[in-house]
Design a protein around this nucleic acid. Structure first.
Lengths: 227, 227
DNA sequence: AATCTCTTGGACTGTTGAGTCTAAAAATAT
DNA sequence: ATATTTTTAGACTCAACAGTCCAAGAGATT
């Protein structure tokens, strides 16, 4: 295909899912591996092509340039993560009517917050978040995109769940808090999350993880458990 | 580096051939400007030399290579920030005996947390933190160094202050919390801090800042205000 | 079989940037 | 004044890397 000066590329062309979807998948996976390993600037298209066992030109056929490849990879990882988190919540949604006492409530929050934080604040998603954060100085829309595709889809869900506990009388949350979108969900996860990120390498991660999540949940309960 | 030359540094470095301290200062400032503007990989030594109005070779005479220059700049910014925060706390330390009622306490915490978060979670320090975070995948000791030179110097101070309020009966903090180093200080600052970082560009920053700090402080007080 | 699209590998361009080298000039010390 | 250290400008090496071009081939579709 000779797209020389004769054929002016159509400007705002939305998106063409051209090419073999299996190659596309392989490239996205490889991009995840290499970008997360090397960072945006250091990562080379050649390395990604090699990792995907695909020729360099194929990468360009599918994704146009490095920046769009990065965005496609980010969207992909976030979509999978959001799906994972939603599934978690479907499975472990604590039914307010089934929680007998305060200990049940604490156990349910520990379970839910623990799973949430494990997915969102450990593993590859944290590294990807760092990358987006670092690049956001140069591509400001990345930050926006991250929130739109990620937290803004999952946080309302968690918030609705916690609000239900409040409505059921299991949590005593003031109206000012309930009125702020997603605030309650952030209050449950933010502190434990940032604490988990501070776990020192070399420490017993699993034990430290449990301890810090519990500290976060207990702080949350101390504020909102009815007494 | 600043006044504290022989302080506990994470790793020992062969003393570089000292040159003119004013050049050194100029290079550090320029490195701050350029690294924070362009990121580690994108930043060029030539650009830094130009910004410092110094020849490239002089940069190498003083700092050896890019990585060590980056570390020296990071240490420098952190040292200044720590000094700033310490000064803030000397000035606005709320004397427990002078706090008449709950409203006084809330006002004092708002002031203290607000100033703290303004210094630590806005401005150049946040950008620098992002850089360190991004580079920490490739230079793991950077993360360690950041905590050693920064938070591990300031957080105990804030924590001592809050513990004093607890001892004076103005806060009702359980022993499990008081026993964990710096936990109380993180509980006051972490949530408001991460909320401030999520302020959308285009919003009225100052108003949003005050609102979110207040939400954090009220969360904290709801957990620990005696009732 | 003929056609159309996608893929391949490799060569090629142009740029950028880290780090070195050098010889001369400036500053500093003795 | 002389010796030592530091600075300077610029040329230079070497490597990496984004993105392009091309000609041959693999795969499907008709």
């Amino acid at each position: 295909m000779t797209a020389t000066a004769e054929e002016p590329r159509a400007q705002q062309e939305p998106q063409e899912p051209q090419g073999n979807p299996r190659k596309r998948r392989a490239i996205l996976d490889a991009a995840g591996t290499v970008f997360l390993r090397d960072g945006f600037t250091r990562a080379g298209i050649d390395a990604i092509a090699a990792e995907a066992k695909v020729s360099k030109q194929t990468v360009y056929n599918h994704f146009g340039d490095k920046e769009r490849l990065f965005m496609a990879m980010t969207d992909d990882v976030q979509d999978r993560t959001v799906a994972h988190v939603m599934e978690l919540m479907d499975r472990d949604f604590p039914d307010p009517s089934k929680l007998a006492g305060p200990e049940d409530l604490r156990a349910a929050l520990l379970q839910l917050a623990g799973e949430w934080i494990r997915v969102v604040y450990t593993g590859p998603l944290v590294a990807l978040r760092k990358l987006v954060d670092a690049e956001s100085e140069h591509h400001p829309y990345l930050q926006q995109r991250w929130f739109t595709n990620g937290p803004s889809r999952t946080m309302p869900r968690l918030n609705r769940l916690l609000s239900a506990l409040a409505r059921a009388g299991l949590l005593d949350v003031p109206a000012e808090v309930l009125d702020v979108p997603d605030l309650l969900a952030y209050q449950l996860t933010a502190m434990a999350g940032s604490a988990v990120r501070r776990i020192e390498p070399g420490a017993d991660f699993e034990a430290e993880f449990q301890r810090r999540v519990a500290q976060g949940v207990d702080f949350f309960l101390r504020a909102y458990a009815p007494r």
